[in-house]
């Protein structure tokens, strides 16, 4: 405080009057946009490519990295495997709860997984028993599971996740890393045959087309 009473008030008034004429700090939003730094995290969003399909590769890395487990997956994706379920903000809590349940080892009712449920998980329990329920032996467990079923059914993977306590994302990541592990049953060619049986005309047309192109009847064009 100064010796002269009121001098501080007058100096304050002078300062506000000076600020009155200074350039303003407001960003007039719709016309001017704030300078957002390149590292800004912002809002989580799934990207689409130019054909309108999801760019998501279902690698589960984001779900694995998410600290509060608000990212979860379910349904079908572009390759017919999974659909990344990324609900509106109000569904995060629900999915997070579900995710926590799944980690806790109890069964989670999720209609998106119903399609994949139709396997008997009894053999998985036997396999896990032999490997002492230890997630460190994840690869041998998965190989043994594939040896039993012929492929890796989702139900079996979920069972492994529930019993060993490993994240589903981690099991899926491990399984999708190795080329010799597969998620579809090895009946793709049988299905193709079935299609060709349903459409004999098309098969005949393809055969004649191949013959006309290569000169070899029934040749693989």
């Amino acid at each position: 405080m100064s010796l002269v009473p009121g001098l501080g008030l007058v100096r304050g008034m002078a300062l506000t009057l000076r600020r009155f004429f200074e350039p303003k700090a407001t960003i007039r939003y719709p016309e001017v946009q704030a300078d957002i730094p390149p590292k800004f995290r912002g809002r989580l969003q799934l990207l689409y490519d130019e054909y309108g399909t999801l760019k998501c590769e279902t690698c589960f890395q984001c779900a694995q990295a998410c600290p509060i487990e608000c990212i979860d997956m379910g349904g079908m994706d572009t390759k017919g495997r999974f659909h990344v379920h990324w609900g509106a903000a109000e569904t995060y809590g629900e999915r997070r709860e579900e995710s926590a349940l799944r980690r806790s080892g109890r069964t989670v009712p999720d209609p998106a997984y119903d399609h994949f449920e139709g396997v008997d998980v009894g053999p998985v329990d036997d396999i896990l028993e032999t490997f002492d329920h230890d997630p460190a032996h994840l690869l041998p467990i998965l190989e043994a599971t594939q040896a039993h079923y012929g492929y890796l059914p989702v139900g079996a993977l979920k069972r492994i996740s529930q019993v060993t306590g490993t994240w589903y994302a981690q099991i899926y990541g491990t399984a999708s890393f190795y080329g010799h592990l597969r998620f579809e049953p090895p009946t793709v060619t049988a299905q193709a045959t079935a299609i060709s049986e349903r459409r004999p005309d098309e098969a005949a047309f393809l055969a004649s087309l191949g013959a006309s192109l290569t000169g070899r009847p029934g040749g693989d064009a």
């Binding site: 405080m1 100064s2 009473p5 009121g6 001098l7 501080g8 008030l9 100096r11 304050g12 300062l15 506000t16």
Partner: peptide, 9 residues
Amino acid sequence: LTLLNENEI
């Protein structure tokens, strides 16, 4: 700070 530090009120 000059707005407040010397302000008598």
